[in-house]
């Protein structure tokens, strides 16, 4: 694992009017690491991710991607990262191939390299049948895979994924896990948010938990256990519920059942 942080946020804050969505979040993700970002609905995960990839301007604080200040050098920071949003809104009237070529051109890739990477991607994601059909005929899962292919097209050093496994079949979800591991093996940093705690527990080297805009815990599974005063073997679900105050719902569920 590389010790140099490829994603670094310092006191990152975002407010929308009176509402404080993200409150002084500071974290770092180093090369070769998969960082899982967890939190209840509306905790500020997507807002944090959007600030990291340059889609939202922070109200305060700083973000660095691969050493580039996202505010001061946005183009350099964007060029080294790949991003998959939670909802893959793609251009419906383009075919998968046309969309990937478009993305390749936006990232300044050479035509020959783009074509080679597209061949690799559609074989990898099993999109060969659909690659020349327009995206409006794709299922949600296929659109998700196309968005992931677009994010990987330029072989980014930093990959940011917002709920990447939503809508994917188990085979594709497993494929994504394998790809992410391969990327980190090559020294890339992966930052992903997910609601599926089992994925976070199995895949992520470190986990950050955000609650009401504040980063309330960061660390490996063992570190989180000690932080939540849990015993060895406690699941991430229990740790998550203890830290975010959702444990009482488990009791309600028990009563209802």
């Amino acid at each position: 694992m590389n010790s140099e942080p490829l994603i670094l946020t310092k006191q990152l804050t975002k407010s929308f009017g009176d509402k404080l969505a993200v409150d002084q979040v500071s974290l770092e993700v180093v090369g070769g690491e998969i960082f899982g970002f967890l939190g209840p609905n509306g905790a500020g995960k997507t807002t944090t991710i959007k600030m990291i990839v340059g889609l939202l301007q922070p109200t305060a604080g700083e973000v660095y991607v691969a050493g580039y200040d996202v505010q001061a050098e946005p183009l350099a920071a964007k060029a080294v990262k790949g991003y998959v949003p939670d909802t893959p809104n793609l251009y419906k009237k383009l075919s998968g191939r046309e969309f990937l070529r478009f993305v390749g051109d936006l990232y300044g890739m050479e035509a020959a390299r783009v074509d080679r990477r597209i061949e690799e991607m559609h074989k990898l994601f099993d999109l060969s049948e659909a690659i020349d059909q327009t995206i409006d005929s794709y299922s949600h899962g296929m659109q998700q895979k196309t968005a992931l292919a677009a994010a990987l097209l330029h072989d980014p050093k930093v990959l940011v994924l917002d709920e990447p496994t939503v809508g994917l079949d188990p085979k594709s979800a497993r494929l994504i896990k394998d790809i992410l591991r391969q990327m980190t093996d090559r020294g890339a940093a992966v930052f992903l948010s997910t609601h599926i705690l089992e994925i976070a527990e199995r895949m992520c080297d470190r986990i950050g938990i955000i609650h009401q805009g504040r980063l309330i815990a960061v660390g490996t599974m063992d570190e989180l256990r000690s932080l939540s005063l849990s015993q060895a073997g406690t699941s991430l679900e229990d740790i998550f519920l203890t830290l975010t105050g959702g444990a009482e719902y488990t009791e309600i569920a028990d009563v209802l059942s």
Binding site: L55, P74, K78, N89, Y91, F102
Partner: peptide, 14 residues
Amino acid sequence: EGPSYWVLKSAPVS
């Protein structure tokens, strides 16, 4: 561009 504008905004294009 509609909701697909994220593609342009997250790309390294001024």
